[in-house]
Design a protein around this nucleic acid. Structure first.
Lengths: 362, 362
DNA sequence: ATGAAAGCGCTAACAA
DNA sequence: TTGTTAGCGCTTTCAT
C-alpha cells in the first residue's frame, strides 16, 4: 500500500543531499543555527520538513550528549499516591525538557533490581526511586557509576544520595496521639506482611506516641498484617476487618496503611453493620481526593504528594551541576480530622484534638 | 572522596582487557554464551562483575537493535483512570521485557505534538496514545516512519492504526437510558470546554438515547461545560453545581464526565443541603474503587480500564510481527446501578432498570 | 560559511 | 573458539 521494504529512517545525510549541503551543515542548522547563512539555513529547514527527518537520540547519546530520559521506580503506579507523586516528578522534569520513564516494582526486590539494571543500560539521566529492597548497595553503585539516584519516600539515613521524604514517624505519631486523646486504649495498626519503609516507620511512630503517653505499646497497639498481591489492597483490607473484630480485647480504632485500605475497612464494617465512628474509629493515610467524601468523611494524614515528586525531580536535576552536594528534603505530614474518629464506645466526650491537628473548614 | 575526574563509564573494551580477551568475545558472552568456551566465559563473567560493566543501550540501538522503551501519552497520569490504564500497559510490556515511558498532555494539543516528536527522537519501540488533538496526521506519519502507534480510548475511525477503545457512545446511552427509565426528563451532562473524545462521544450517546425515547435532545439534555486547569477537576465540578441549580427548568439528574467530577458534584450538593438521590440524581463514569463507597454509593459506568491498557500494549507488541495487520479492539462499558440515582422528585416508583444494567450484589 | 574526518560503544560478518 | 573489521547516525574539531 505504502512504500515497499520497510520505511527506512531518514538520516541527516538524506537531508543533506536533499538540501545540496553536507551533513555537518545540517547538524549546524539544528544545533547552532546562527552560524549558518540565512539562505542555506532556509534550504535545510525546508529539506528537514520535506523529508520528515527526526534526529536520532541514541546516536546523539553515543556522542556523549545526556539523555533526556529520567527513570522513576515506584511501588505501584496504579496506587493514586504514586500516580500523583509521579505527576509531580514528570512536571518538574518537563520544565527541563526531560521525559519520565516509570515502572512499578510491586514491592518485589528482585523486580527492583532488574529495573535498576535496565535503566542504567538505557543510560538514563538519573533515577528517582521509592525503594523496597534493603539493598542500598545497588543504588549507591549506580550513583557512583554516573547514574544519579534520588530516594523518594525514604530517608537518606546517611547514604551518599539525595532524598525527598515525608516524616513518616511523625505521621504515625500524629494519628496515634489523636486516637489516644479521644480515649482509645486499644488500637489496631493495619499494615502488611510485605510493606514499604513508610508503613513500617509509621508503625514505629504510633508505638512512640503510645509509649510517650505512658502506655505499653505491646498491649495497646495490635499488629494486623495483610497478605497482599493476589487480593487487591481494598479487598485484603476488607478481609482484615474480620480478624480485627475477632480480637480480644477488641481494638476500638484502626489505623490503616493508606486511604485505599481504609476504603476496604469502611466497606466491610458497613456490611457487617458496625457504625463508624460510634463502634470503631478508622484513620487513613495520604488524604487522597476521595477521603473527604466517604461516609463518614475519613480522618487521615495528609502528605504533600505532588510537591514531594517535584522536589525529588529538582534534586535529581541539580545533580548535573558541578557544585552539587547530596542532601535531603523532609516534609511534614498533617493530620486531617474528619468524622471517622470519635471516642471509643462508652467513653465520655472527647478531649480537644492535639494542637498539631487541623480540623477541616466546612 | 571517590575517584577523581568523574566516574568514566566502563566499556566492553575495559572488560575485554580485564579478562584478557577481545571485545567481541565479551559481546559473545553476553549475546550467545553457548558459543564461548566455558572457561573463557567464566573469566569474562567475572571481569564483568568485577568492573561493574553495564552495556550501552544507545550503542546497541545505533547498531539497529530495537529499543526496549515504549512511549505512553495520556491526558493526565494523576487521573486514576489513566494510572490504572497505564499500569495495564506497563504489565503487558514487562512480560516482553519492555519499559514504559509515560507523559501527560494535560489536554494540550501542542504538548502532545512535542511529546510525539521527543518520543520519535528517542527511537522508541512504539507509542500508545490517548490523543487529544485532532491532528491524526502526526500519528499516521510517525507510524509510517517506523514508530508504531496504537490509539487507546479512541476509535480507529478508518485510520491505518491499531486501536483499543471502549464504546463510549454506548456508555452514554446506558447512563441516559437508566435515567430516562427512572422518569427523568431534564438531564444535565457535565463536560468541559476542552474535553477528550471519550467525553464528547458519551454526550452523543446520551442524546441518542433521548432521541430514541421520542424526546428532543435539545430540550432534554442540558450541556454544562467546566473550564478546567486552573481549578482542579473536583473543584471545578463543585463549582458547576451552582450553575446547574440555577437552570430553569432545573435538571433532575447530572451525568458527570467521570467519577472524580461526580465527587465534586456530590460534595457541593451536600454542602448546599440537597439530597442525593431524592432531590438530584448523580451518575459518574469509570467506576473507580472509591465510587461504591461514597455517600451515597455512586451509580456509574464501569470501564475495563486495566484490560484496555493490556490490550493496547499487546497490539503494539504485535506490530513487530511480519504478518501484523492493524485492527481495533472495542470493549463494552457496563452500567453499575447504585444509590445515587432515583426517580425525580414527585415521581412515582421507578420502572425496572433496562436489561443492560447490573444491580450490584450486596 | 561550509565541508571532511574522526570516533562515541556496540554487533555481526568474516577471517584466522 | 576467538579476533579483526566495518559501520550504525551523529557531533565536533579543524581545515578550507
Amino acid at each position: 500500500m505504502t512504500e515497499r521494504g520497510g520505511p527506512r529512517r531518514v538520516r541527516m545525510r538524506d537531508v543533506a543531499v536533499a538540501a545540496g549541503v553536507s551533513a555537518s551543515t545540517v547538524a549546524n542548522v539544528l544545533s547552532r543555527p546562527d552560524i549558518v547563512a540565512p539562505e542555506t539555513r532556509l534550504r535545510v529547514e525546508q529539506a528537514i520538513r520535506r523529508t520528515g527527518f527526526v534526529r536520532s537520540g541514541p546516536a546523539r547519546q553515543l556522542r556523549g550528549l545526556p539523555s533526556p530520559i529520567v527513570g522513576s521506580v515506584v511501588l505501584d503506579l496504579a496506587n493514586p499516591y504514586f500516580a500523583a507523586l509521579n505527576r509531580g516528578v514528570e512536571d518538574r522534569l518537563a520544565e527541563a525538557g526531560c521525559l519520565l520513564l516509570t515502572a512499578s516494582t510491586d514491592l518485589r526486590p528482585e523486580k527492583e533490581g532488574q529495573l535498576l539494571d535496565l535503566l542504567q543500560e538505557q543510560a538514563v539521566r538519573g533515577i528517582v526511586i521509592a525503594p523496597i529492597g534493603s539493598d542500598r548497595g545497588a543504588l549507591l553503585a549506580a550513583s557512583r557509576r554516573g547514574t544519579p539516584v534520588v530516594l523518594v519516600d525514604e530517608p537518606r539515613s546517611g547514604l551518599d544520595l539525595c532524598a525527598a521524604a515525608v516524616d513518616d514517624v511523625l505521621g504515625g505519631r500524629l494519628a496515634a496521639e489523636h486516637l489516644l486523646a479521644l480515649g482509645h486504649r486499644r488500637i489496631a495498626y493495619l499494615g502488611a506482611t510485605v510493606e514499604s519503609g513508610t508503613v513500617t516507620r509509621r508503625r514505629a511512630g504510633v508505638r512512640q506516641a503510645v509509649a510517650d503517653a505512658g502506655l505499653d505499646p505491646d498491649d495497646t497497639v495490635v499488629d494486623l498484617r495483610m497478605v497482599l498481591h493476589p487480593p487487591a489492597l481494598v479487598d485484603a483490607a476488607a478481609g482484615a476487618v474480620d480478624h480485627l473484630l475477632a480480637l480480644r480485647p477488641a481494638p476500638t480504632a484502626v489505623l490503616c496503611l493508606n486511604d485505599t485500605a481504609a476504603l476496604g475497612v469502611l466497606r466491610r464494617l458497613h456490611a457487617l453493620g458496625r457504625r463508624v465512628p460510634e463502634d470503631v474509629s478508622v484513620v487513613g493515610y495520604d488524604d487522597l481526593p476521595f477521603a473527604a467524601l466517604l461516609s463518614p468523611p475519613l480522618t487521615t494524614v495528609r502528605q504533600p504528594t505532588y510537591a514531594l515528586g517535584r522536589t525529588a525531580a529538582g534534586l535529581l536535576l541539580d545533580e548535573a551541576r558541578p557544585d552539587h552536594t547530596h542532601r535531603q528534603v523532609l516534609f511534614r505530614p498533617e493530620l486531617m480530622v474528619r468524622s471517622s474518629t470519635a471516642p471509643p464506645p462508652g467513653e465520655p466526650a472527647a478531649d480537644p484534638p492535639p494542637p498539631t491537628a487541623r480540623r477541616e473548614r466546612r
